[in-house]
Nucleic acid binder design. Structure first.
Lengths: 347, 347
DNA sequence: TTGTATGCGTTATCAA
DNA sequence: TTGATAACGCATACAA
């Protein structure tokens, strides 16, 4: 009764049922039962069927722990993030979790809160749990110190690259994103393009600006207003910078904002000034942070860094490394343009 | 050389060192080594010291897998979320991860993508990994079907309560949050209070509205505009509803928005209409979604549902259940008021 | 084709 | 106070 399950409903996995029980039930030895269930060829078809049926009837679920002890592989990986709160870690984490089909590999989640001590702590815990590999997700796209080369398992760094070129790191393509944004504005026929962006201490801000300037230079252009407007990653800065920009340079016809937050500020001021978007000024953001971009007035064209994709690739690379094919160096994952209504061809 | 570590740097945990090596190195038996390291009393102080030192020198890290096999406890729990993307799961997940100090308990992360099949899949995987317990995090605060009573480990439901009252569920206090919002507006001296909120199919919308209406009724008040403005969880709806409200009811002095997104729309229109916030109309949001609330003009007073706290409590309740003290029923975690500048006393 | 025996790295129960 | 030895649940080399 206590183990009973009515027909149709799959019986819940019963923890106390071991391979011994299955073997006894099927009238074979433990070894044979093991072989039968693991698809080893050296077992008669009829026997295998009997064992499998026994396993099902007892709703046997092999003890992964015991298996790991023998095979020396746990089928687990550690996901060491430094900032769960940050919106960048989450998509990466989703992609990674997704790529490890749950049957094969399970993911241990650890949040180090951007604290080195805590990270060491988590690392020890993960290693003593005998994870087969590690993904280290940074909070900012700037270089971080390597966990070292002496680790007993392969490591892949995502978002924030390791400072050791022998490690394998996956990063977003901020330079390419900047180029892509400007390129799109150029295709829309814009020539007076300004770039308002965030904190210049961020590699992301520098890289996006560099990509933008490069693409402009290819057309023999300079940014409207003469320079890149560095500031902060906030709507308020987007508003302030836009006001200054409009004063200095009345004929601007496009603004590339370094983030969707900044873009919201930009749109706000343009709206206040009764400057139509996109007919008079086109606006493009960065990040594709949906709640900001999709709800903007008008909905915001922006660059998506494909973070989920980055997470998926990180998982693939880690799997490869666990199979004995480690990589190294920095691999860049391209972003993509997401067009909404804040940009359009001139006229 | 290959194992070498220069003084100062902690040697990396060496996977291949087993208790046997430590014992041999210290000149004792495996059994004694085990006792010494685990703080068992029946071992001479000097011996213990020798063993500990040996363990350190070899940078021994006990194999958790082997320990689990004996103790029948893995020190792991499964975190089964139905929607990683959703912004509600993340704080809960953070709180839970935080509450299980990483040394004691590690967390397996699984995203079922709100799909029952996938959930079953993950569940099987987690059980075969012999997790000691499960936290099930829902995507919406509406009731979900129980995983059943036949599971071999305790389960705690977070955010979305189980439909089986014998399970233990933790939920946010939407009714209380609604009361709290209106109460704050009343304290600010407002009497003509409107409520604009989201999709009426969401329990969250209904509950917040109920709390608001209850509190209003206690003062003998009705909502401004005569009724609650249900609609959608979007800025656009916030804008549209506000325009309608202002037409129907010119003397409104406060608006309670059912979400921060809606509140942003409300603020937008008030700004367009040159209606000052908060001096003429106070606005309060819901969720404390920082990027929206903190960047609003003016920064938005709102209700925080304490999701991280909810996650922490979920972890605590699960720990208790794993210790043999299971709970049941639905436990409500109160929210809190976060005051910013969009509300202030009248005059 | 099947079964016996051994071991994975630990903890726990005994004797010594 | 210490040390053999038997588990834990399973996989595999080897013997039958």
């Amino acid at each position: 009764m206590s183990r009973g399950s009515t027909a149709g409903e799959p019986a819940p996995a019963n923890r106390n049922v071991t391979l011994r029980d299955v073997a006894r039930f099927a009238g074979v030895s433990v070894a044979t039962a093991s072989k039968a269930l693991n698809g080893q060829p050296q077992v008669r078809a009829e026997t295998r069927a009997r064992v499998i049926q026994a396993a099902e009837q007892l709703s046997f679920s092999p003890n992964t722990i015991a298996q790991s002890l023998i095979t020396q592989r746990t089928g687990t990986v550690g996901l060491l993030t430094s900032d769960l709160e940050g919106r960048f870690s989450i998509p990466i984490l989703m992609g990674a979790e997704d790529a490890f089909g749950s049957d094969q590999t399970s993911v241990f989640l650890c949040d180090a809160r951007d604290d080195a001590i805590r990270e060491k702590h988590h690392l020890r815990a993960l290693l003593s749990r005998r994870v087969d590999g590690l993904i280290v997700v940074g909070a900012r796209p700037d270089t971080r110190t390597s966990l070292g080369r002496e680790l007993p398992v392969p490591v892949v760094y995502a978002y924030a690259p390791s400072d050791d070129p022998r490690d394998l790191s996956l990063v977003t393509d901020n330079v390419g994103g900047g180029r892509m944004a400007v390129d799109h504005l150029l295709r829309c026929g814009r020539r007076r393009i300004a770039h308002i962006t965030g904190d210049p201490d961020y590699g992301a801000a520098q890289d996006r600006a560099r990509g933008a300037l490069e693409r402009l230079a290819e057309e023999g252009l300079e940014p409207a207003g003469g320079e890149v407007w560095f500031g902060m990653w906030s709507e308020a800065w987007g508003r302030g910078a836009t006001r200054m920009l409009l004063e200095r340079c009345t004929d601007v016809d496009a603004i590339f904002a370094g983030s969707d937050e900044i873009a919201r500020g930009v749109l706000d001021v343009l709206h206040e000034e009764r400057i139509d978007v996109p007919s008079r000024v086109a606006v493009i953001g960065f990040d594709n942070w949906k709640v900001l971009a999709a709800n903007a007035r008008p909905p915001l064209t922006t660059i998506d860094l494909n973070l989920e994709q980055l997470g998926r690739i990180a998982a693939q690379r880690l799997s490869a490394a666990m199979e004995g094919n480690p990589g190294s160096g920095v691999e860049t994952v391209p972003g993509r343009l997401v067009t909404r209504e804040s940009t359009a061809p001139l006229r």
